[in-house]
Design a protein around this nucleic acid. Structure first.
Lengths: 125, 125
DNA sequence: TTCTATAGTTCATATGTTGCGAACTACGGA
DNA sequence: TCCGTAGTTCGCAACATATGAACTATAGAA
C-alpha cells in the first residue's frame, strides 16, 4: 500500500484545484468536509440519495488529496480527512470560498426549480 | 456544419466552468479573450511558445463555448470570440475574476521560480 | 461564375482518464 | 489467530481528449 501523497503548498496548482472541484461528487465531499472536519471516506457512501461505490469514493478522495485540497490521516482503521483551506487561502486568496459559494448558489437554484416544477405538476393534474 | 451552441445563462453550471478552465490552454485563451475581446481562433496557434494544432484549438473553443464562457460569432471568414463574463458575474458573482486572479498569481510564481533557477544555474557554472 | 486562399469544423483514431466490481491490505478487537 | 470494518488497488469497460486528414464556409480575384 503506497503511502498517501500530499503535495506541498507550492506544488498545488489552480488547474488541479479546478479539475478536482469540477466533479459534482468531489465538490459535495469537499463542501461537507469544510463543515464536518474529520469525516471519513465511508461517511459518503450516499451523497444526495445517490450510492457511490467505495472504490469510486476512494479514487475521489485520492483526487482531492493529490490536488492538495484535503489532508488524509489514518486513525486506527479509518481515515480522517480535513480540508487544507487555510493553506490554500494563503496561496490563492478567495479561490475556494468563491467556488463553494457558486456551488451553493447553483444548488439553491436547483431546489427552487424543483419546487416550481412540482407546483406546475400539481396544477396540471 | 452544425450551428454553434451557446447555453442560456441558466444552463451554465459551475462544474462546466471549472472543468473548462481547468485546462491550461483554455485558461490561457480565456484570459487573453478577457483582454483582447474579439480575438479569433487562429490568434492562438501559438500559446506561450507552444504550437497548438488548429483542430485542437477548435475543440478548445467549442469547450469554452459550450460551458458558456465565451460567445463566438462568424464574421466573414473568421470567428470573433468574446467572453460572457458580465452574464456569468450576474449568476456566479466573483467566480471568474477570482479564478483568473489565481491563475495570474500562479503564473507570476512560475516566472519568479524560473528566475531563481536561472540565477542558481549561473552560480553553479 | 469559377478558382483560390484563409479560417474553422468534422471525422477517424490513438491515447488518456474515469467508474466500478472483485480481490486485496491494514488495523483493532475477540 | 481469526474476524470484521475501512480503505486501496487491479483490471477492464466506457468515456474523454488530442491530432492529422479531409471537409465546409466565406471573401476576393480572375
Amino acid at each position: 500500500m503506497r503511502p498517501l501523497i500530499h503535495p506541498s503548498i507550492e506544488d498545488i496548482t489552480v488547474e488541479g484545484i479546478l479539475h478536482a472541484l469540477s466533479d459534482p461528487v468531489r465538490a459535495a465531499i469537499y463542501a461537507e468536509l469544510a463543515i464536518s472536519s474529520g469525516a471519513t471516506c465511508s461517511n459518503f457512501l450516499k451523497i444526495s440519495d445517490r450510492d457511490i461505490p467505495k472504490s469510486t469514493l476512494s479514487q475521489h478522495f485520492r483526487a482531492l488529496r493529490e490536488a492538495g485540497l484535503i489532508r488524509s490521516e489514518r486513525q486506527g482503521v479509518e481515515m480522517r480527512n480535513t480540508t487544507r483551506c487555510a493553506e490554500i487561502e494563503q496561496r490563492f486568496p478567495d479561490l475556494i470560498s468563491t467556488i463553494m459559494k457558486a456551488h451553493q448558489l447553483q444548488a439553491a437554484g436547483r431546489v427552487r426549480e424543483a419546487k416550481l416544477k412540482k407546483s406546475a405538476g400539481r396544477k396540471a393534474s
